[in-house]
């Protein structure tokens, strides 16, 4: 029943739309992709200095120092530790023994400046907030 002319017009519009969306995806992917690294990978790879990283590790006990809107603390995993200088709202659950994932720039071999952080649930609840909730 479909006449072929309408079909072609519809197809053409679809292709154009998808091409525009495709271009939007392509152009926003490059700038918002973050590379996940472990603490060990970050401190052992000097080529990462000056680059954006997303790194997760356990917050070291009693390492948190607050100064105004900035919190400085250490995160570690089995391969080492690094210092995080975080500026912004600290997450609801925070403190030693909590797993934190920080996004930011590696400014020196073992120092990350971050403006975005999320914390996982305390390890006591081993299932974690994510798996445990939704």
């Amino acid at each position: 029943m479909a006449d072929s002319r309408s079909k072609k017009r519809l197809l053409a519009v679809t292709v154009v739309l998808l091409a525009i969306i495709g271009y939007m995806i392509f152009s926003s992917t490059a700038s918002s992709i973050a590379h996940h690294k472990s603490v060990g990978e970050v401190i052992s790879d000097p080529s990462l200095i000056g680059k954006p990283v997303k790194v997760g590790g356990m917050i070291a006990d009693d390492s948190v120092v607050r100064d105004g809107n900035t919190a400085t603390f250490k995160i570690f995993d089995k391969d080492g530790q690094l210092t995080v200088v975080y500026t912004g709202q600290i997450p609801k659950q925070f403190g030693g023994g909590i797993e934190a994932i920080v996004e930011g720039k590696l400014v020196s071999k073992d120092r990350v400046e971050s403006t975005r952080m999320m914390t996982k649930c305390p390890s006591k609840y081993k299932k974690g907030v994510r798996e445990g909730t939704k």
Partner: peptide
């Protein structure tokens, strides 16, 4: 071992 940040989604979601 990568992830897309909030900006990715927002940049698409706003105009669309």
């Amino acid at each position: 071992k990568k992830s897309l940040g909030v900006e990715f989604y927002n940049r698409l979601a706003e105009p669309l």
